[in-house]
Amino acid sequence: MSVPALMSRTSFVELNARERARALLDVGSFRELLGPFDRIESPWLARQNIVPQADDGVVVARGTIGGVAAVVIAIEGAFQGGSTGEVSGAKIAGALELAAKDAEAGKPIRPVLVFETGGVRLQEANLGLAAMADVHAAVVALRAHVPVVGVIAGMIGCFGGMGITAGLVSRLIVTKQARLGLNGPEVIEQNAGVEELDSRDRPLIWSLTGGEQRHAVGLADDLVADDADALADAVRAAFDRGAPAEHASERIAFWRARLDRLPAAPEGMALRKLWTGDRP
């Protein structure tokens, strides 16, 4: 990005969840469902001496994208690491299920998931896990009718059960700052030791799970600069392109063949060479 472009853009990474939802919807169309004044917060956090947030860290907004009815579900990464609890999970799943109802009834709907999360909220473990299953089922039900678009901007990225959700969407948009994975680097280090993965080695972490790498090996569809307008354009373009003939997560033989060729010591650039040109 040139210096003037850098100075004049609005960083999407720096926006909070509500501002991100607003940035992706057509100007003036933002309307929040279950907003902070509805006070649907986590009933579990205060009992564990953790300060809750009035929207439980998920913003659900209706509006339009490219003039078509849309719902943007944006996760607030700064609150409890964007973790999915009972309430935040139910908000995500509920919004997707309502969108599926619209789609089944033949009403146009453009669903967008803006990820920024480490996955299930450990303080609400089982309820968060149950919500995750609802979210996965809802994405699969919805994508049969309309494309579901995912955005990972960073800097937290998208891990855990939400990493699976990102794998289920019709089209995934990432920035260079994004990360995508199942177990986060800290979890891997804690379980397998620092010799296996040094979670403080940022170049190493981004070379494996970063947005540029995930795009290069075909795990993300679009790599976009950290610019709110550019991301809104990419989301619109993703819907205009429509759903893929076959979703990436349905191509089981393709992914299995890739894993069969996995080198003993996977390394970012080697994987890129091995897998580039071999896009799903």
Binding site: N16, G35, P36, F37, A46, I50, V51, P52, Q53, A54, E76, A78, F79, Q80
Partner: peptide
Amino acid sequence: HVGVVASGDLEVLMEPANETVVSVRTS
């Protein structure tokens, strides 16, 4: 409504009322 319950930050919900009451939950 402004802010996020993020490290070093806070969330404020402000509404019209007859008397001024501030409920604080702090970590």
